[in-house]
C-alpha cells in the first residue's frame, strides 16, 4: 500500500474516532461547561456552548450552602476505608490460595465468586433490620462494613490473579538463598506483589465510591456520601442546573481521574482475570 493512502486512511480513522469519542464524552463535558454558567445561561435556548459569561459562582454556592466537604469526606472515608479493610482480609486469603493450592482451592474461589452474584435485594431486608437494631443505619462504619463485604470476592479474585503470576521459582530461589519467611516477604514478595495490590485498591475505591444500592438504602442524604448527596438534588422540581452541574462535577472529578489511571487494571479486575 502506498504511504499517501495509508496516511489518508489514518486521518479518516482519527476523525471518526474523535467524533465518536467526543459524542460519548459529551454529557460529562456538558455538565462541566454548565457548571460555569449562570443559571439563566444554563437553560438558555438555543444552548450556549462556549460563548457565555464564565463564572465560578456555582462552585462557591455549592460549597457555601451545602455540606459538600462533609459528603466528600464521607465518600473518601467509606471508599478508602472499605477498600483498606478489604485488603487486610483479602491479601492473606488470596496469598494462601495462590501459593498453597489444595484440592479445594478451585471450589473456594468459585464459591467466593458466587457470593458476588447474590443480588443485593435478596439480603436488603435483613441487613436493613440488623443495621437498624445495631444502630448502624446512617453511619459510615455500617457502610464501610457492607461495601467491604460486597467487594471482598472481587478483591480476593483480583489479588489471586496477580499473585498467581509471581513465579514459584522465585520464592524457592529466595529460600535457597537463605531468606527467612519474614525477609522473603520484605525483600521479594512485597515488591513483587505491590503493583497488584495497588491496582486492586484503586479499582475497589472506584467501585465503592460509585456504589449506590447500599449507599442509598442504608444512609439518608444528610449523613451519606456523595452518591446520597447528589441523589438529594433529584427532589425539588425546576431545580438549578448550574448548581447541579457544579455539585456533579465536584463529585465525579476525583474518581474519573482515578479511573483514567486504572483503566488497564480495570479490565483484569472486573473480569476476574478471564480477559487480560
Amino acid at each position: 500500500m502506498a504511504r499517501a493512502s495509508d496516511n489518508r486512511h489514518k486521518l479518516l480513522v482519527t476523525s471518526v474516532a474523535w467524533v465518536v469519542a467526543l459524542a460519548i464524552f459529551f454529557p460529562i463535558l456538558w455538565t462541566v461547561l454548565t457548571s460555569f454558567k449562570t443559571e439563566g445561561a444554563a437553560v438558555a435556548i438555543p444552548p450556549q456552548f462556549l460563548f457565555f459569561d464564565w463564572t465560578t459562582q456555582n462552585y462557591a454556592e455549592v460549597w457555601a450552602r451545602t455540606d459538600y466537604l462533609r459528603h466528600f469526606t464521607n465518600s473518601v472515608v467509606i471508599s478508602v476505608g472499605s477498600s483498606l479493610l478489604g485488603l487486610f482480609i483479602a491479601i492473606p486469603a488470596a496469598w494462601s490460595l495462590a501459593f498453597s493450592p489444595t484440592r479445594r482451592t478451585r471450589g473456594v474461589l468459585m464459591w467466593m465468586l458466587s457470593t458476588k452474584m447474590l443480588p443485593a435485594v435478596g439480603v436488603l431486608v435483613p441487613i436493613y433490620l440488623l443495621f437498624k437494631s445495631a444502630g448502624l443505619l446512617d453511619t459510615r462504619t455500617g457502610l464501610v462494613i457492607v461495601l467491604m463485604l460486597s467487594n471482598l470476592p472481587i478483591m480476593v479474585w483480583m489479588l489471586f490473579t496477580y499473585f498467581k503470576e509471581i513465579p514459584r521459582d522465585i520464592l524457592e530461589a529466595a529460600r535457597m538463598d537463605g531468606a527467612t519467611p519474614g525477609r522473603e516477604l520484605l525483600y521479594i514478595l512485597a515488591p513483587m506483589a505491590l503493583p497488584g495490590i495497588a491496582s486492586t485498591l484503586l479499582l475497589n475505591v472506584i467501585l465503592a465510591w460509585n456504589e449506590s444500592f447500599w449507599t442509598l438504602n442504608l444512609t439518608a442524604a444528610s449523613t451519606g456520601s456523595l452518591t446520597a448527596f447528589i441523589a438529594s438534588f433529584s427532589a425539588p422540581e425546576g431545580l438549578f442546573y448550574a448548581k447541579l452541574s457544579a455539585a456533579s462535577t465536584l463529585a465525579i472529578a476525583p474518581i474519573v481521574v482515578l479511573g483514567w489511571l486504572s483503566q488497564k487494571q480495570l479490565v483484569r479486575g472486573l473480569t476476574f482475570g478471564a480477559v487480560k
Binding site: M176, T180, M192
Partner: peptide
C-alpha cells in the same frame, strides 16, 4: 547448596548487582 533454576528465577525488581548480592545479604 546453590541452585540455578530453569527459568533463572531472577528477582525482577532488583538490579543485577542486588540479585547477585541477595544471598550474601541474607
Amino acid at each position: 547448596l546453590s541452585m540455578v533454576f530453569q527459568s533463572y528465577a531472577l528477582y525482577p525488581h532488583m538490579s543485577v548487582r542486588d540479585n547477585i548480592a541477595f544471598p550474601l545479604k541474607m
